[in-house]
Design a binder for these strands. Structure first.
Lengths: 125, 125
DNA sequence: GTTGTCTTCAACCACATGGTTGAGGAGATG
DNA sequence: CATCTCCTCAACCATGTGGTTGAAGACAAC
């Protein structure tokens, strides 16, 4: 998997177990044992998932005796939403421009100037 | 990788080449060849990336002679943003409540009733 | 100091992923 | 028909990922 942060964050959330852990951590911090409890896998497997989440920046760990409380770092979400929203916006603007174009073609069709375009050619759905 | 759609979408975007393709497709549709041109990998590799994007629902392909124009399906972005925003909101509300709690503790400290909490115990950063 | 609890490290395994090359399908064009 | 272009399929390879078990580190508690 690529090394840049955005890739690590997307990859970290591309696993249902890790997404569920993040969902639970949004409500409250938790220890590794608490996090592992609901799932039918070893604690070591959860420890590995946490390592992935930590390396993506989604999660941080402190220390409390033998325990390692896990805390969600929600700011990292911004990285993703900024990326997504940027291209969603571009795609939507482009779609809007296409709407304008189709509307203009409709006008031409209704108006004097002879247009050769048919409903068919424009791909009526 | 897990089979559910959200996992597939996150996984699809966890690769810089695929993210770049999505970014370019936000501006305009493109053929496989056009998409492959900027990258230093084989066309077959790009074809594989497109398969991943298509199976995640981020992209659709039509047909134009031998060409297979690729189109971005931006609605899928909503799946992700909804997931992200839900837990970001929960985490923020929780943070806000913590702020309230700390403010209330400050009040108690300043007011009559003897509280045992010290600045230390609350973990002043 | 020994024991017990929480967690991680290491080695291993099965399988997915991203890349390669080579062959071939689908269609336009000579 | 022959050929060229655009694209995908198949086989292969190296590496990454998610899981396992066993050992061990860090700390509390007896």
């Amino acid at each position: 998997m690529a090394a840049d942060e955005l890739s690590r964050v997307f990859a970290a959330l591309a696993d249902p177990t890790r997404r569920d852990m993040v969902a639970r951590l949004a409500r409250r911090d938790a220890t590794v044992g608490e996090l592992a409890e609901p799932y039918d896998v070893s604690v070591q497997a959860i420890s590995k998932h946490l390592k992935v989440l930590e390396e993506s920046g989604l999660v941080s760990r402190s220390r409390d005796a033998q325990r390692r409380p896990v805390h969600l770092e929600a700011e990292v979400f911004d990285l993703m939403t900024k990326w997504i929203e940027r291209y969603r916006r571009e795609a939507e603007e482009r779609f809007r421009r296409l709407d304008d174009l189709l509307a203009r073609l409709d006008d031409e069709e209704a108006a004097p100037g002879g247009t050769r375009r048919t409903e068919q050619e424009r791909g009526a759905s």
